[in-house]
Design a protein around this nucleic acid. Sequence first.
DNA 1: CCCATCCAACTACACCTGTAGTAGTTCTAC
DNA 2: GTAGAACTACTACAGGTGTAGTTGGATGGG
Lengths: 132, 132
Amino acid sequence: MTRCPDLTNAELRVMKALWELDAASVSDVRAELSKRGQDLAYTTVMTLLGRLATKGAAQVDKTREPFIYRPAHRRESVLRDRLRAFVAEVFDGRADSLVLGLVEDATLSRDQLKAIERRIADAEKPKRGAKR
Amino acid sequence: MTRCPDLTNAELRVMKALWELDAASVSDVRAELSKRGQDLAYTTVMTLLGRLATKGAAQVDKTREPFIYRPAHRRESVLRDRLRAFVAEVFDGRADSLVLGLVEDATLSRDQLKAIERRIADAEKPKRGAKR
DNA sequence: CCCATCCAACTACACCTGTAGTAGTTCTAC
DNA sequence: GTAGAACTACTACAGGTGTAGTTGGATGGG
């Protein structure tokens, strides 16, 4: 599995639109971005998609015009990579203090935290049988 | 309370050294960074400290040479701001899915998660009496 | 057929970032 | 008091980033 390349913020925004659309032309992406309050020139979107393609973050189908772009990596992988880098860079790898910060900041409520825990517990149980 | 300005990664690394030292000259910071595996030219550290001062992230005492720099904001505030921006930017504000990502990634263990929860519960209890 | 439209390729460009060099000033140890 | 060290101010500069313009081909309506 090819590693997900690093994306800039602008590129990530475009990727989010792409994930939403799954397979789209420049215009489609542009419209989706506009829907999200990001109004960019057509050529700007093209530039970004081009960069994404160069980086291998998106695949382009050039057999027909307009070109169709689609994401080359799952959303979760990319976000996870970003997250990992962020934890390392900003929190020196201490994920727990990051989470603590979230809660103190009230960005994350205790309830949400509990919900997460429950979700994890649920996910873990089935694995018990088919473990490895 | 003046808002903490945005810092680049290099600047943040310098700030971390500054927080550790609390009040320090360029040389001091440089030594601290070196201790952390960051070997930068003296002038590079100076440039970074200068930028931090310009941004208002550090205060400089110029009454005596060498100048003494100290952090203008608490570590927690700055990290929290960064975190907040990150959650908004990358996870569209969904902190819970961020945490979930951490756990799935095994960056955060279930035990750590529980420990955090316990810590929060503890912190919340005393507040009950002196509430609001 | 010709003009407008859509689209891709290439080009542009200002600002940011990370890293550092040079010049000039003061302090300090002979 | 002079040479070198320490230190600051200014300058530099390549590469990244966000945003967009220009050029030219294809296409479709009149």
